[in-house]
């Protein structure tokens, strides 16, 4: 049964130095507040996994949390590049970053294999590309029935998967809707899981197309309103496009980034900011319950 706890307690319990940690959320429902809590607790040597590392992974990489990244597309959607990610790859700042690079189809299938309890997945992908030459986790395989040459990718089984959802009930059953990406597979593939939610409600009302994760499939739930900001939570708040734009100049400069980190992430632990109003730039990113009691 999922235990409902505070975000700092959940991260302290579940995320350890050296772990393989996946934060998923495909543009929608990105668990940003949880990522920033990992920075605040100064986790190190993580292998970070994510199909689309974007701003929150740029922040975690820039803060020195990661030694390796397993991914398929790293960018600031609609804006450009991730400059902390680039600085780590091109100049090993603040620490070197090893890459394990896939395509979206490959990553999605690796989670499917992980959730299915299988050692690998098969797909018709990567052929003719330069990716297999640089990524050891892409191997050719022959179909035993047709002889077709296909590709095998190993299961992903993170130590911890963290996702964000709209709601949980008091028993810890989780409900999410809209674009739900690869979150179900990522949670079921993981040894431990944390779901941050917009709100904990007495009872989950059925929703068309919703994904429900039963409480017994989740390790911890933490209530973190606006915990996906600057991404969005359908029916709660819109994507904060200005934040994504504003991130670009902050992330280009090591000093500007370090200042941002001190002011908006580390300062949050000592003096939690009041609830964030709608909109706001990267300065409004501190989760509302940082350092709150459980």
């Amino acid at each position: 049964m999922a235990e409902i706890v505070s975000l700092p307690d959940a991260v302290a319990d579940l995320v350890h130095d050296g772990d393989v940690v996946a934060l998923e959320g495909f543009t929608h429902l990105i668990p940003v507040a949880a990522g920033q809590e990992i920075i605040r607790q100064r986790r190190r040597d993580l292998t970070l996994v994510r199909m689309t590392p974007d701003i929150v992974y740029d922040q975690m990489i820039g803060a020195g949390c990661a030694r390796k990244l397993i991914f398929s597309w790293g960018g600031n959607p609609g804006v450009g590049s991730l400059h902390r990610f680039r600085d780590a790859v091109q100049h090993a700042w603040p620490v070197p970053l090893e890459l394990e690079e896939h395509s979206h189809a490959g990553m999605a299938n690796r989670y499917v294999a992980g959730a299915s309890g299988l050692p690998f997945a098969v797909l018709r992908g990567y052929r003719g590309t330069d990716l297999p030459a640089h990524t050891a986790t892409i191997k050719p395989i022959t179909c035993p029935f047709t002889g077709e040459q296909l590709v095998a990718v190993p299961a992903l089984n993170p130590d911890v998967t963290i996702v964000h959802a709209q709601r949980a009930d008091r028993a810890g059953n989780v409900q999410m809707w809209g674009i739900t990406g690869v979150q179900k597979e990522a949670v079921l593939a993981a040894r431990r899981s944390l779901v941050t939610v917009e709100e904990v409600v007495a009872e989950l009302e059925p929703r068309p197309g919703a994904v429900v994760l039963p409480t017994w499939a989740v390790t911890r739930v933490a209530e973190v309103p606006r915990g996906a900001h600057p991404s969005y939570a359908q029916d709660y708040y819109e994507r904060d496009n200005d934040y994504y734009q504003a991130w670009d100049p902050i992330s280009r400069d090591r000093d500007a980034f370090t200042r941002w980190l001190d002011e908006h992430v580390f300062a949050g632990a000592a003096s939690p900011q009041p609830a964030v109003s709608a909109g706001g730039g990267p300065g409004a990113s501190t989760p509302t319950n940082a350092g709150s009691t459980s």
Binding site: S72, E101, S103, H104, G125, Y126, L131
Partner: peptide, 8 residues
């Protein structure tokens, strides 16, 4: 940024 969905 990398491959994304493009190879497939």
């Amino acid at each position: 940024p990398g491959a994304g969905g493009a190879p497939e």
